[in-house]
């Protein structure tokens, strides 16, 4: 099967610091993969390079066989890559519905238009997206007053507006309560299976990773040290060393 996303020898250096070093991997269409690693491993830097927010020092990223390294985030978005941010990104001066409407307008490339009132455009698709993420009842509220978990859901709806083939999610459940986490991830994986969407997400909560990811990559100090099924990764002594330090009982990771 041809890869949807192809990352080859990707690196980003900040002076002497090698935030990401020689990372290569492929993502097949429809895959749901987690990227884990301790704080400072380079997960967010890697995401920023995939989305065009940070220029790689070396290496390339290809999407559907075409090189996307060097493109701007907006261009990469139009190719079919969506993303959510670790620090949730929404537009607080608008209502929940308007947030999604604006994203839909962007997907239709109507953002330079002066014609008509934006709040009367894209209403049906925006409401449908809000329904999918379970935010339909809050459509008219200002985004600025939402609870954190609802903001995460709203951002998911925004990211889905472009009907992306690949969705990058940076810590999708950070800061949420345990039951909320499971809900959100069930929603996300449900959407992915319905639409055949590919997902790459970073996550600190191992419950979320092992419950929802089909495969797991482990990043440590900028390098990929493992890529396997969740069970194999859990049993991998190198991964245990990264998370627990050597010489410790692996049972802790099993419990996690």
């Amino acid at each position: 099967m041809t890869a949807l996303l192809q990352v080859t020898h990707l690196a980003r250096h900040y002076g002497a610091l090698r935030a990401v070093e020689d990372v290569s991997f492929d993502l097949a269409p429809g895959e749901i993969r987690a990227l884990i690693g301790p704080n400072g491993a380079g997960k967010s830097t890697l995401f920023k390079m995939l989305m065009g927010e940070t220029r790689p020092t070396a290496g390339t990223v290809s999407f559907e066989g075409r090189r996307i390294t060097g493109l701007r985030p907006a261009q990469i978005c139009r190719r079919g890559v969506g993303r959510t941010f670790q620090i949730t990104g929404t537009w607080p001066s608008m209502t929940v519905l308007e947030n999604v409407q604006t994203a839909c307008l962007a997907a239709r490339r109507r953002t330079f238009s002066l014609m008509g009132y934006a709040r009367r455009q894209e209403v049906a698709p925006a409401r449908a997206l809000l329904g999918i993420v379970g935010m339909a009842e809050q459509a008219e509220r200002p985004a600025a007053v939402l609870a954190y978990g609802d903001l995460k859901r709203l951002e998911l709806a925004i990211a889905l507006a472009n009907d992306p083939k690949l969705l990058l999610m940076d810590e999708p459940t950070a800061g949420m309560a345990a039951t909320e986490r499971a809900d959100l991830m069930n929603t996300v994986t449900g959407i992915a299976r319905d639409r055949g969407m590919t997902i790459l997400f970073t996550e600190h909560d191992m419950d979320v990773v092992f419950a929802h990811a089909e495969s797991v990559m482990v990043l440590d100090r900028g390098r990929l040290i493992a890529h396997d099924t969740p069970d194999a990764v859990r049993a991998d002594p190198r991964v245990q060393a990264v998370y627990l330090g050597t010489g410790l009982d692996a049972a802790a990771l099993d419990d996690a």
Binding site: C77, T111, A161
Partner: peptide, 13 residues
């Protein structure tokens, strides 16, 4: 204006 990174990631130029 509210969130340039989010806007760019949604395809806004």
């Amino acid at each position: 204006r509210d969130n340039p990174a989010r806007a760019a990631a949604s395809g806004l130029a």
